[in-house]
């Protein structure tokens, strides 16, 4: 059973009186513990696709199953619960909460979403901070650390609740080249360590090759699938 399975998936936005198709009937499947990239130019539908996989948006037609759940059946509250339990997010702009320390940012999903007991929560947060190499920055606020460090914290936050799937929309767009590579390396390492499936989007050709499976999107259509450079 695939972790994510899309069948004839479409998404159409209505802008005024005009229907604008963003995803035009695509099929794909993503296996557990894979490291997947959706690539393509701006406006190709990467973010729309990731939003649907992340249960932030509903498909217009077709089916999209994540962890065997048809996301079209989830209402707002159920979708929030599903995301909290099964999906981690890494954002392009890091999106750390500025009033919380690094430790508290990573702790947030366990405290405000899943309500883990304090001792277990602390142990898990320290473990994740250690895994992303941010243990020594735990008491700092987001405005006291660099962009690369912020993204490490964001990765730790995405992984802290042990989700099956982490979605990262352009996670390296605001980072320099070296830092971008290090973040992708970190994400791979986390995948290896925790078995989490990573799906990220990018339009940067230099980092596309880092993915083990790449889906190329163009104008809302899936043009090529490749596996380690091989077309699948």
């Amino acid at each position: 059973m695939s972790l994510v399975q899309a069948s004839n998936l479409t998404k159409t936005y209505r802008v005024g009186d005009i229907d604008v198709p963003a995803i035009k009937g695509i099929d794909f499947a993503i296996e557990a513990s894979s490291f997947v990239a959706f690539v393509g130019p701006s406006g190709s539908g990467k973010s729309t696709l990731l939003n649907m996989v992340g249960c932030l948006d509903h498909p217009s037609s077709g089916t999209l199953k994540v962890l065997d759940t048809d996301i079209a059946t989830l209402d707002r509250r159920a979708a929030a619960r599903f995301r909290g339990e099964h999906i981690g997010f890494v954002f392009q702009d890091f999106n750390l909460i500025p009033v919380l320390t690094v430790f508290e940012n990573v702790e947030y999903p366990l405290r405000m979403v899943q309500e883990w007991p304090a001792a277990k929560r602390r142990e898990q947060v320290l473990r994740m901070l250690d895994a992303v190499g941010m243990s020594d920055q735990a008491d700092k606020r987001p405005d006291q650390i660099s962009g690369g460090q912020k993204q490490r914290v964001a990765v730790a936050r995405a992984l802290v609740s042990q989700p099956k799937l982490v979605l990262a929309d352009e996670p390296t767009a605001n980072l320099d080249h070296d830092t971008a590579y290090r973040i992708l390396e970190l994400m791979k390492k986390m995948r290896d360590e925790f078995g989490t499936t990573f799906i990220f989007s990018t339009h940067d050709p230099k980092i596309m090759g880092e993915a083990e499976v790449t889906f190329t999107l163009e104008d809302g259509r899936l043009m090529t699938n490749s596996n380690g450079g091989r077309h699948v």
């Binding site: 929030a80 999906i87 981690g88 999106n95």
Partner: peptide, 11 residues
């Protein structure tokens, strides 16, 4: 910020 906490599953 609201979008972020909502996305990560805050009810």
């Amino acid at each position: 910020e609201i979008g972020t906490i909502a996305a990560i599953g805050t009810p």
